[in-house]
Design a protein around this nucleic acid. Sequence first.
DNA 1: CCAAACTGACATGGCGTCCTGTCAACTTCC
DNA 2: GGAAGTTGACAGGACGCCATGTCAGTTTGG
Lengths: 208, 208
Amino acid sequence: MSVVGSPTRPYRGVSATDRTARRRADLLAAAFDLLGTVGWEQATMTAICARAKLTERYFYESFASRDELLMAVSEELADRIRGVVVAALDEAPPEPAAAARAAITVFVEMLTDDPRVGRVAIVEAGATALLRRRRHQILGEFADLIVAKSHEVFGTDALPAPRDRINALLFTGGLAEVLATWLTGEVDATKEDIIETAVNQFVRTAHQ
Amino acid sequence: MSVVGSPTRPYRGVSATDRTARRRADLLAAAFDLLGTVGWEQATMTAICARAKLTERYFYESFASRDELLMAVSEELADRIRGVVVAALDEAPPEPAAAARAAITVFVEMLTDDPRVGRVAIVEAGATALLRRRRHQILGEFADLIVAKSHEVFGTDALPAPRDRINALLFTGGLAEVLATWLTGEVDATKEDIIETAVNQFVRTAHQ
DNA sequence: CCAAACTGACATGGCGTCCTGTCAACTTCC
DNA sequence: GGAAGTTGACAGGACGCCATGTCAGTTTGG
C-alpha cells in the first residue's frame, strides 16, 4: 500500500507538513510562471507538474483541479497587489492628488515591473468563467477602496452613491485596460504618461 | 464520389451560393447564441452544429476551426456596435456633453438590451488569446474614434498626445468593465446612472 | 427514368488531457 | 537490519472534442 495518503513522518530532515507546504508552493510558483508566460491554454496540469518537478499525484494532494490551482494563483497575486496599494494609501498624505499618485504609482509599477504579474492579473484573468467572476470581485474590492478613500479626501464633496462606485469601477476597469494594452506594446507612451493621465482622471472625476 | 466539394446546382429552389451563405449565417447565429448564453467553454463545435441543425462537415465548408468561427462572431458584432456609435456621433450636435451622451447612450443600450450582445462583446471576449488580441484592437479603434471626436469638439483645448489616447483607453476600458459588472448584477444602479457618470467622466477629462 | 449531385445521420480514428494505478528506489524508525 | 513510509517515474484507461469517412435517402438535370 503506502499510497500518498496523509504523510506523517519527516523525510530528509523535513517534516511532513513542511514537505506538503513546499510542494504546494512549488505548484503555485510553477503555475504562476506558466500562466504569466505561455498563457492559460498552455498552462496544463502536465506542464505545471513538469515545471514544478512533481508527479501529477502530488497535484491532487493540494488541489482538486486545475481551475482550483489557477484560482489560488490569482488569489495570492490579488492579495499582494492589494497589500502594496493599501500600504501606499496609508502612508500617503490626505491630499487628493498626492494620495492618488502614490496608490496609482505602486499599482502600475507592481503590474509592469514583472510582466508575468500583469499578464496573470489582467490578461489571463478572463480565461475561464471562474476566473472572470473572481476578477470582477477583485476589481470591485479595489473600487470599494477607492470609494472609501474618495470620501476621506473629498469629504462632503465626494460623489454620492451610486455614482461614487460607478466612477470607481470606470477608473479601475480603465486602468486595467490601459495596462493590458501597454503590456502588449500597442500604445506609445511612458509609464509616467499613464500614471499622470490616471491621476488626472481620478482627481477630476471623484468629486462633485 | 460526390463529397460536398463545391456545390454548384440549385437545391430545393435555392442556388448553391445562397445555400452556402445560409449555412454560414446559421452557424454564426448558433455560435453567437451559445457564446452569449452558455459561454465559450460550452460553445463547442458539436454544440454549435447541433444548434444550427447542420452536420459538422458543413462547419468546415465555411470555417477552418472553432476559433475562426468565434472570431467571425466577435467581428460581426463589433462592426454592428461601431456602426451605431458612429451613426450617433454623426447625428449629434458638435457640443461635448451632447455628443458624448448620444454616443454613450446607444453604446450602453446596444450592449444591455440583448444580454447576449454584452456577454459576447465584453465578457466572453477574453476567453482565448486570439479573442483577447482582437478585443484590444477593437477597444483601440473605439479609443481612436474618441480621440478624433475629442479634438473635433474641444479643438486646441483637447488633450495632447499621447495623453489623449491613454485617456480614451481609460474611458473605453472602464465602460466595458462597468457594463460587465452591471450585466452580472453586481452593481446597484440604473442604466441612467451609468450613462450620466460616463458622460461626466468624458466631459471632465477629455480637455486640458 | 436514370445518373449525378446534394443532404443528413451516423460511425470511426486520432489526439490530448485528466486521473488512477503500479513499481522500484530511497529514507525513516524500531 | 528489516518493516513500513515516502518519493519519482511511468503506464494505461476514461473521456471529450476534433476531423474525416461511409451510406442511404432525396433532389436535380438531361
